[in-house]
Design a protein around this nucleic acid. Sequence first.
DNA 1: TTCGACATGTAAATGGTTACATGATTCA
DNA 2: TGAATCATGTAACCATTTACATGTCGAA
Lengths: 210, 210
Amino acid sequence: MLSYALLALLSRRRLTGYELTKRFYGSVAFCWHAHQSQIYSELKRLEKRGWVSSKLETQTTRPNKKAYILTEPGRDALVAWLRTPPPEFALKDEWLLRVWTVELLKPDEARDLLNACGRFHEERLKAYRAIVGTLEREHGSLDSTPYETLVGPYLCLQQGIWHEEMYIRWCRWAARRLAARGRKRSGRRSAAAIDLHSVVRRARMNGKDV
Amino acid sequence: MLSYALLALLSRRRLTGYELTKRFYGSVAFCWHAHQSQIYSELKRLEKRGWVSSKLETQTTRPNKKAYILTEPGRDALVAWLRTPPPEFALKDEWLLRVWTVELLKPDEARDLLNACGRFHEERLKAYRAIVGTLEREHGSLDSTPYETLVGPYLCLQQGIWHEEMYIRWCRWAARRLAARGRKRSGRRSAAAIDLHSVVRRARMNGKDV
DNA sequence: TTCGACATGTAAATGGTTACATGATTCA
DNA sequence: TGAATCATGTAACCATTTACATGTCGAA
């Protein structure tokens, strides 16, 4: 999958592994995360497959570098991939996974978890907004003048912003809900552990296509 | 990571691998995805570490089964994990990654991509809502009476719903934006490829902490 | 009699993470 | 003088995916 993220970056311009890595973290990484070491090895694989080609540039004052460009087969592969919708959706969110079991924490620990989660997403929101801000200052409002080469990143940026805004709202809402539960809890305990799966199964049988 | 999702499920009740797998897909999988085969091998690893223990139940009319329970060290490990915030956030969204390069598609293909994405998230929204609906029908409004053992899943479910609602809105918005761009495009082309990374770097230098 | 649910796995391959290695240059 | 930037990688390990394997029972 990472390969397509790299092809996407290379579809814009010729890049060395180093430049590509930097760009990656400032843009596509918001859609698809990867580590630096993986980028280099992935580039080699792509070159073997003939999807990119490289040219070594010897430098005297700096370490030598390899500039990669997208080949025609590479571009074809990228477009073919774009045309096939993802086979499934593998959501993985460590914050959410923790919240799923939040009942095992003491009330104040639970609150800390949600606050930390909120702060994390506020940081991300700030990052997204800073990028959009700089883009708009330099190219005018992207809202009114959609630049050819920036539509994709711009749309994704907007998704990121909406996502973070929603996430922050959710963290606050969840923290309030937990606090309310903390206040009510004394004395009352639900009779038995509720069987979430049986609920899901019944929902499915009700024709709700769970 | 999957290990903690399994521990979380086992913290609620004793389960066989088969039951656990089914439950997994109806609940925690919305926070952390995994395949069936991984669940079985992960269970074995957990047992080796002493975080779960199993008891074989021989059956005559059905295949034998192994029931797993959470051990004390297992519960400790789970709670310890809950208390440590995730080290980083590795977002991976194949739909978004495609949209990032949407400019390589023809306008109608781009529209199809966003529509497919929207439909996908509508399906997920339906699934979330069906679960919440059944839960509320059986246990009363979760909004007003927060059940001890269901807080976590309920909060996550709500996040899922907000997420899908936001995503659907975004798909529609993005499709409209692309359509507008399609209409304007004739004749005008942005002068040069815009260097997203340099924008990010400048944003960072402006003290925006990108 | 065929299909789906029950019930458990293995094996190979790929993808991804963590940690390490090197060494010059530029700027504060 | 020390930290950050430039520039490339390797190796070992762990997590995850894909594909396959096996066999019974009950319901339509």
